[in-house]
Design a binder for these strands. Structure first.
Length: 578
RNA sequence: GGACCAUUAGCUCAGCUGGAUAGAGCGCUGCCCUCCGAAGGCAGAGGCCAGAGGUUCGAAUCCUCUAUGGUCCGCCA
């Protein structure tokens, strides 16, 4: 159930009636009519802008429309009052039975809050896609967590979601890893090795070197590169991807599909994608203009194959083939997205790091061209995270050895904290991650605050069970026993949940879920605190089992919504804080 | 030179795709624990929504320009 959608439908019905009665002229569009929670609770439970939106096209005053609509709405049992206010808002108050319905829905409908927004459409969310050169570091985590929560959100909103990781195993960096693993392999055979420029000395490669030794023995020792490179490349990539998978798992991320860039080479798939663009007359032989601003010293004009991305809003056309005939990095990316389109996805989302900002337009251009404009691509950027520790910024440096991995992060603050904190902020604004603050166990820490709300409810449930209160049919409780104003406020907040899901999913913004959970948790805590002063608001009412059941039903419903929301964010809904 | 993103309370950030008197946390101020739910609670102060124009019933939100900050900008991967 979605209360806001229900009431909006009611408003539209009433407007339609007014049209047939001749109060409103024919042919009015109701698309702009909204039903929203009011900014100020004293205005009522819901507000509609119908009168203001329709006044102009209907050629009448907002007040007149509002009055007529109010009279109509009052005919529905759910509407207790409908008052015109401000510039023409219609403020609605809802019957207490409506809130009881929300509580029951949250308790009995496992899909409370899910949506048919996605209508089963296939959507592909690509995220992380870090080079397979080693374990993930903190720089990757924001995009990883964001992409994962977004995927869950879209799933919850009714999309058929595929979580995907693009393995950049086609470029030269893989050779570097392969050579580095080879050095560690020699080391495993007791040789002295030195890591020169162009190799990675990372300790995480030691295990890979030993594993290679276990696999091939001494077959590659003191052999020229052409003997072992191809094989070690595969071996090293697999080993690195195993590390990546472990890191993802420790963040609670599990991909549906890993797509190998390498699989595009030598299989005709790049050629196929480029041919598709050629057939659309979007590939031509030409010369790029020199870059503006600081001119590279060695820049020289050169003729090459270019993609006409300017036709689709890009600033420059982009090269797909280098002067030496090899593909640019862009070419396999085109082929990869061609593959996504070919797999029948209705929509695509790419999550990039902030360092790929300049890449967005050409990627959108490519997808628009390849799909004939039928498949939308939304690119979300994960902005940088500044790390703070002991009051000052913590700069990462590979050389200085101050390199924080995903494992370090998870070890220090835990998966739940890392996920929630990063998901509270919009993805495209930079933010500061303070190690000291996020591990604090207090109200000031939003992760703790939300989890604590959930745990508190479970604490009440345990106490109620100890007191022998029957909790087997909370949905059947007489909710009129928990219908005071602060209690209704909590139910009203729950009623927003389906709306939050839709809005968040429509804009691909999971942070809205986190913000909402904070607000909902706040309502739970607030109600709890009121019990300190007003014993009639305590959840366990001595000698009044029906009232206790109703109040428990209310907060239990809230905890169910919290756990749904935390589920989307990938944060554990703790039942107990320790 | 250009692109993208940001700019909201002293600080860190929200603001539900254009709605009413712009919100939260921290910090600040003032109250509140002999007892039952204080890892606290309640209340208050604090804003020219970077600036200037524009669009309309109505703008923090949309458009243009300007300023500041961030991320980038060759056939790199």
């Amino acid at each position: 159930m979605n209360l806001f959608a229900d009431i909006r439908a009611l408003v539209i019905d009433c407007l339609t009636d007014l049209t047939t009665e001749g109060v409103l002229p024919d042919g009015l569009g109701f698309d702009n009519v909204t039903v929203e929670p009011p900014r100020d609770a004293s205005h009522g439970d819901m507000a509609t802008n119908a009168a203001m939106v329709l006044a102009k096209p209907a050629g009448s005053k907002p007040r007149d429309i509002a009055d007529a609509l109010a009279a109509k709405l009052m005919g529905d049992a759910r509407i207790v009052s409908a008052e015109v206010a401000g510039p023409g808002f219609l403020n609605l108050r809802l019957d207490a039975s409506v809130w009881a319905g929300v509580v029951k829905a949250a308790l009995t409908q496992p899909d409370f809050g899910t949506s048919d927004l996605g209508a089963g459409k296939k959507i592909n969310v690509e995220y992380v896609s870090a080079n397979p050169t080693g374990p993930l570091h903190v720089g990757h985590t924001r995009g990883a967590i964001f992409g994962d929560a977004l995927a869950s959100l879209l799933d919850y909103a009714g999309f058929d979601v595929t979580r995907e990781y693009y393995i950049n195993d086609g470029g030269g960096q893989v050779d570097v890893v392969a050579r580095s693993v080879y050095l560690r392999y020699l080391e495993a055979h007791g040789q002295e090795v030195t890591f020169e420029d162009g190799t990675y000395p990372g300790h995480y490669l030691i295990a890979a070197g030993e594993a290679l030794k276990d696999k091939v023995g001494d077959a590659y020792v003191d052999q020229p590169e052409d003997v072992w490179l191809a094989d070690v490349r595969v071996f090293a990539t697999d080993a690195m991807m195993d590390l990546v998978r472990e890191d993802l798992a420790s963040l609670g991320i599990k991909m549906d599909n890993f797509f190998s860039e390498k699989s595009l080479y030598g299989t005709g798939r790049i050629e196929e994608a480029i041919a598709d663009l050629k057939s659309k007359d979007l590939i031509y032989w030409g010369t790029l203009k020199p870059p503006k601003g600081k001119m590279p010293d060695d820049w020289q004009p050169r003729e090459q194959w270019l993609f006409k991305s300017t036709d689709f809003g890009d600033d420059e056309d982009r090269a797909v083939q280098k002067g030496d005939g090899a593909w640019t990095y862009f070419a396999p990316d085109i082929a990869y997205h061609f593959d996504k389109v070919s797999r029948g996805f209705d929509a695509l989302v790419d999550v990039f790091g902030a360092d790929h900002t300049g890449y967005v337009k050409r990627m959108k251009a490519a997808v628009a061209a390849l799909s004939g404009g039928t498949v939308p691509l939304d690119v979300k950027l994960a902005q940088i995270v500044r790390l703070f520790k002991d009051g000052s910024e913590f700069k990462m440096s590979k050389r200085a050895g101050t390199f924080i991995t995903v494992q370090d992060l998870v070890d220090q603050v835990g998966k739940d904290v890392a996920r929630f904190i990063m998901l509270m902020r919009k993805n495209d604004t930079p933010f500061d991650f303070d190690f000291d603050k996020v591990t604090e166990q207090s109200k000031d820490n939003p992760v703790f605050y939300v989890q604590y709300a959930h745990a508190r409810v479970h604490s009440v449930l345990r106490k109620a069970a100890d007191a022998g209160i029957d909790l087997s049919d909370l949905a059947g409780a007489d909710m009129s026993l928990a219908a005071t104003e602060p209690e209704n406020a909590l139910a009203a907040k729950m009623a927003e949940w389906p709306r939050v899901v839709e809005v968040a999913a429509r804009s691909n913004e999971p942070h809205r879920v986190a913000q909402y959970l904070y607000d909902l948790a706040s309502e739970v805590h607030s109600l709890w605190n009121r019990g300190n002063d007003d014993a009639s608001l305590r959840f366990l009412q001595d000698d009044n089992i029906p009232a206790s059941q109703a109040k428990i039903a209310l907060i239990r419903a809230a905890s169910v919504v919290i756990s749904h929301g935390l589920g989307i964010l990938g944060v554990t809904p703790a039942e107990e804080m320790r």
